[in-house]
């Protein structure tokens, strides 16, 4: 396949200073600002039980989580539209689609086998190879496709999509390392990201999970510190027992299987030649 056959003459990124990474979805400065703003909104959407001042109306609003669940899809849509505003070329779309399918197929395995979160595993490796922009979009599409296939669209979906998108984007932002160091870095990141994702999602449904009357519940309008302590107790009591072994297992899986999978992903990215400048000239150069 020759690089000159790629259709949209939009990719403006020249061959980058990081030749080992493909930039299949380039993050322009404008998109970076949009991502940062969306992250700020996301932090508020996840953390409002701890951030809200007791004096504000929202701290006492029962529907607050549902309102955030309606707000986040718009924010996600705007950011995804902004990331794809320059057009994503067919190779990146196809790669995104296929990896989304693999991730969505892996997801049900995670609920069957306690302590195994295969989605992050793929997301971290793909984000590492294809960069933060691709990682962000892949995280969102994987969870979305998985919800569509299992009929699991609900108020939790925007939170899951944003959380997974952060995990994928973060993997793309990790410092440059090769060999054993890279594997250790990715394994450590996968473990930390998986744990953080679990805690963040806990936080997003904590006001829902228990009624308002137990010692672990979110109490609207209480001082932040008291709510934080109750939340930590809640996490400790409910999910940390699952989250910790899961994080350890994901890290171990990255260590054991990361090398061949990274190689496969890199080879495909090289063959797709995302960074090759697209020119429409008369002469056809040998393939990329």
């Amino acid at each position: 396949m020759s690089a000159t056959s790629a259709a949209p003459p939009t990719s403006s990124s020249s061959p980058t200073d990081r030749p080992d990474r493909a930039r299949s979805i380039a993050v322009r400065p404008r998109s970076a600002v949009a991502l940062l703003l969306a992250t700020a909104v996301g932090v508020a959407a996840f953390g409002w039980p701890l951030l809200a001042d007791p004096g504000t109306g929202i701290a006492h609003l029962r529907e607050a989580p549902l309102l955030f669940a309606l707000l986040l899809p718009l924010v996600l849509a705007v950011v995804l539209a902004e990331l794809s505003d320059d057009g994503i070329d067919a190779k990146a779309i196809a790669m995104l689609g296929v990896l989304t399918a693999v991730g969505a197929a892996l997801r049900p395995l995670g609920t069957g086998i306690a302590g195994f979160e295969p989605v992050f595993f793929l997301l971290v490796l793909a984000g590492r190879v294809h960069g933060p922009g691709f990682g962000f979009v892949l995280g969102a599409t994987t969870l979305f496709a998985s919800a569509l296939t299992t009929g699991g669209v609900g108020p939790w979906l925007p939170f899951q999509m944003l959380g997974a998108a952060w995990v994928g984007a973060g993997a793309g932002l990790l410092p440059r390392l090769r060999g054993r160091g890279e594997l250790l870095l990715l394994a450590g990141y996968a473990a930390v990201a998986g744990l953080a994702y679990g805690v963040a999602l806990n936080l997003s449904f904590w006001p829902f999970a228990l009624g308002g009357e137990t010692g672990l519940s979110f109490v609207a309008g209480d001082p932040v510190f008291d709510n934080l302590r109750r939340f930590l107790t809640f996490t400790l009591a409910t999910s940390l027992g699952f989250d910790l072994p899961r994080a350890a297992l994901t890290a171990a899986l990255v260590l054991v299987t990361g090398r061949p999978l990274l190689r496969a992903l890199r080879r495909a990215a090289r063959r797709a030649a995302f960074d090759a400048p697209v020119e429409f000239s008369g002469d056809v150069r040998p393939g990329g």
Binding site: L80, I88, A94, L96, G97, V98, A105, T141, A145
Partner: peptide, 24 residues
């Protein structure tokens, strides 16, 4: 019915949904 601005991302999800059976 996804907004037109999300066309590319929507195509990726469609690819994923139609690719899943062949993955199996």
């Amino acid at each position: 019915a996804v907004p037109a601005a999300l066309y590319e991302v929507g195509v990726a999800v469609v690819v994923a949904l139609s690719f899943a059976p062949s993955l199996v």
